[in-house]
Design a binder for these strands. Sequence first.
DNA 1: GCCAAAGTTCGAAAAATATCGAACTATCGA
DNA 2: TCGATAGTTCGATATTTTTCGAACTTTGGC
Lengths: 101, 101
Amino acid sequence: MRHARLPASEEIALEDVFHALSDPFRLEVVRRLATDGEQSCQALEGDRPKSSVSHHFRVLREAGLIRTRNEGVTRMNALRRDDIEQRFPGLLACVVPKQGD
Amino acid sequence: MRHARLPASEEIALEDVFHALSDPFRLEVVRRLATDGEQSCQALEGDRPKSSVSHHFRVLREAGLIRTRNEGVTRMNALRRDDIEQRFPGLLACVVPKQGD
DNA sequence: GCCAAAGTTCGAAAAATATCGAACTATCGA
DNA sequence: TCGATAGTTCGATATTTTTCGAACTTTGGC
């Protein structure tokens, strides 16, 4: 399996991040990754076909929001917390729900 | 001129805000409003036709990012700083360039 | 009242995204 | 090696956005 395109931290573009997060499904994925940590694709698919899920994960990956690594037959997706925080401090805090919201 | 639709602070949706900011022109408008304060539409149009500019201001307005008031024959647009800050603390700080960036 | 200026609205055409099935790839286990 | 599992890629269609001209609205000035 070819290595997926992944922008370096400095290459992450705000427009791309915003576009990636403007979709409800992708926003939810980011939130789940933030609260529950690394997840496989299927752990987050909500009865959607795999090709659709794969598309959304790709958008998140290319925007620089997540990183994917192979673990056996599955792929684990993790939020690029530190990279995002470094590039756009405070952004993740707006996305991840705080208690009492 | 009819009053433009404007969501209350609590109604501002993160997805809408992200979508609004995912366009380079709109992101630039928000930055200009943040740094230079209230502006007319034409002060920010970059050789684009008025209908296109008007469309983008409408997206920003409906997302809850700006407020528009009539001033004579022009309409002045202002960033809804306080409302956005209250609803999504820290978000604007990610958008507006800090010095040395 | 008439004209000009600043935006808005409408409608149609172009461009970008999303959706989903089918075929493909890679890895693990038997 | 043969399945089975987890994703990816491709291609086609549907939906959403963007773009832009033309017509319209509102306000101020003469």
